[in-house]
């Protein structure tokens, strides 16, 4: 007998109950209120919103141009423009409505001490979780310099772990030799979750002027162009994270429900949406509906049944792609 299902989109993430697996990614939605300018957009359609990268002191960011479209993607080099941790915590967090969704901080710094100090300040705030951005490719010091070295990544995580009991998420860079080793070290250092992946480094040249289009010369590539890269990284990291019960936010080019489902099947508990918002500000509703329809069609009651359900022969995970 056909039993109609009303599947739940809610996921458990580091002890937090997210109403949807969709996470709006850091740097795409400002400090949580920006997209509410758009009629019909609601923060309630996302399980969590990651606030813009925050540093100890205010940063002006990079010179123009900061964004540029490339085939099925875009480059960005914002340079972590932000008003500093004190301003974010004292002036912005009180204006957010935590009944609408969960809010995660995104912490970045030039030194380990910077990361620790900003993490400590957010620990004393109402923020729901803290994401360590050790993978930003767009600043001269810090960021990806930590994220490309498993040793340095682990040191940042370990130091921040000591100053917070909030869920700690480490955002991993795809711009490194072995993301699995980095993931393992971050987990051992106390990371509660992993965000996979940050943008892929790239550039564009204006052939008329022979100058780089991006003011920072190089930028981070996002959007559908990087989805296959991100998906593979999520699957690889999931192999490392699963035995430790460490959840993953899979991200990179997710535009539709099928994209999100792929990441969940590959092992992500939550899925990030960023560049797709720029294409279609209302995409969260559509993706949520699509995930729910898929779950119902496959007679699943929750997203949890789908996480990591990839049916892949072991040999497909080999390093050689020849």
């Amino acid at each position: 007998m056909h039993v109609p299902l009303n599947p739940s989109l809610a996921v458990d993430f580091c002890g937090l109950r997210l109403a949807s697996p969709l996470v709006l990614l850091s740097g795409c939605v400002g400090f949580g209120e920006e997209y509410t300018r758009v009629e019909g957009f609601s923060n309630r359609d996302a399980g969590a919103i990651v606030l813009k990268g925050t540093t100890r002191e205010p940063r002006l960011g990079n010179p123009a141009h900061r964004v540029y479209e490339t085939p099925m993607g875009m480059l960005n080099a914002i340079g972590l423009q932000n008003p500093g941790a004190d301003y974010v915590i004292d002036r912005i967090l009180p204006t957010l409505d935590f009944t609408e969704t969960a809010f995660f901080a995104n912490v970045c710094g030039s030194t380990i001490e910077d990361y620790v100090e900003v993490t400590r300040r957010f620990d004393a705030s109402p923020i729901d979780a803290i994401e360590l951005n050790i993978s930003c490719p767009n600043i001269k010091e810090g960021g990806v310099q930590f994220g490309n070295s498993p040793d340095m990544s682990a040191r940042v995580v370990e130091a921040c772990r000591r100053v917070t009991r909030k869920p700690l998420i480490t955002k991993l860079s795809p711009n490194q030799t072995d993301i699995r080793e980095n993931a393992r070290r971050c987990i051992e250092a106390g990371s509660d979750a992993l965000a996979v992946i940050n943008t892929v480094m790239g550039m564009a040249i204006d052939v008329k002027t022979r100058k780089p289009v991006i003011g920072n010369i190089q930028g981070g590539l996002s959007g559908p162009a990087i989805k296959p890269i991100a998906l593979l990284k999520v699957m690889q990291v999931a192999e490392v994270a699963r035995p430790h019960n460490v959840p993953i936010i899979g991200q990179g080019g997710i535009c539709g429900a099928d994209d999100a489902l792929e990441f969940i099947i590959a092992g992500a508990t939550a899925v990030g949406v960023g560049t797709a918002l720029f294409y279609e500000p209302h995409c969260c509703k559509r993706i949520n509906d699509g995930i729910a329809a898929y779950l119902a069609a496959n007679r699943m009651e929750s997203v949890g049944e789908l996480i990591g359900s990839l049916d892949a022969p072991k040999k497909s995970v080999q390093a050689c792609a020849c």
């Binding site: 123009a64 964004v67 918002l277």
Partner: peptide
């Protein structure tokens, strides 16, 4: 200026 979101979310046009 070049823009991505155009609603204040990305700071790409600062």
């Amino acid at each position: 200026e070049f823009m991505a979101c155009a609603v204040g979310g990305c700071a790409g046009c600062a």
